[in-house]
């Protein structure tokens, strides 16, 4: 479904160009949740921007369902960490969802049904007349989910969407997301730097090495039934393995950030 082939991304910078991605190969299957995990500055967001079509790869190719990605496509919707800036603050909950229907020229007669459906799915139908500023952080993220789902994309690209939420709200959002995923069968690429989050959500976890010149150094298959409990010995072992795997890269990332 989503395919990256030897993707390189180089940003012009002084004194020398910055190589963010240095040959990333990745395949995401239909209907799976792939988590990209890595230290900060490892190019996770860059990779997601390339998948979304916001950034063109400097070399290599990106395709979605066999068609090369040449810009933001209607089949892939990006989901941002900072809901405050991603939502339209001058539109209320219902109007935020309606925006996509309007610009995609979905027939007006269908709007009410679609909006009701997705607002109910994220449990926001009682707040449909509120503005984003009147919502809690978790509600704003749920609104982003509803707004994205309403245009019926095949792929959700999520850039650390729950990183700014408090721990309890984040756990609730994981449950909401998994439930929606089970109901809709969307393909999800989920970027995070939180090992527990990656284990909770992912079918597979792609480990990214610290930048510059990041690659996906390892892909881990998670053959564990959901919901996954961190107290479960198998899950705990996996957590430790991943932590050990990431340790040198986290040290490198810290080293770089200190300069």
């Amino acid at each position: 479904m989503l395919q990256l082939d030897k993707v390189r991304k180089v940003f012009p910078a002084a004194p020398e160009p910055y190589v963010a991605l240095d040959g990333v190969d990745l395949e995401v299957a239909d209907g799976e949740i792939l988590c990209l995990l890595g230290p900060s500055g490892c190019g996770k967001s860059t990779l997601l921007n390339v998948l979304a079509g916001f950034e063109r790869p400097s070399a290599g190719s990106v395709s979605c369902r066999g068609a090369p990605v040449r810009g933001a496509g209607r089949d892939r919707v990006m989901f941002f960490q900072d809901a405050g800036s991603a939502l339209f603050p001058w539109l209320n909950v219902e109007e935020n969802v309606r925006f996509g229907l309007r610009v995609r020229k979905v027939p007006k007669a269908q709007w009410a049904g679609i909006i009701d459906n997705y607002l109910r799915m994220v449990d926001l139908d009682r707040h449909r007349n509120k503005f984003p500023a009147q919502l809690s952080g978790g509600m704003r993220q749920r609104l982003q989910i509803a707004r994205a789902l309403a245009v019926e994309p095949a792929v959700l690209l999520m850039d650390e969407p729950f990183a700014a939420l408090d721990a309890l709200t984040r756990r609730r959002m994981h449950a909401v997301l998994l439930e929606i995923w089970q109901r809709t069968g969307k393909t999800i690429v989920f970027v995070t730097h939180d090992i527990a989050e990656a284990i909770t959500l992912g079918d597979r976890i792609g480990i990214m090495s610290a930048g510059p010149c990041s690659i996906i150094s390892k892909i881990i298959d998670l053959d564990l039934p959901r919901p996954r409990d961190l107290a479960d010995p198998a899950v705990a072992r996996l957590f430790n393995d991943i932590e050990r795997l990431l340790a040198p890269d986290i040290a490198r990332a810290e080293e770089r950030a200190a300069h």
Partner: peptide
Amino acid sequence: RQRAAECLG
């Protein structure tokens, strides 16, 4: 916000 709008179509 601009990118979100772009994704939405």
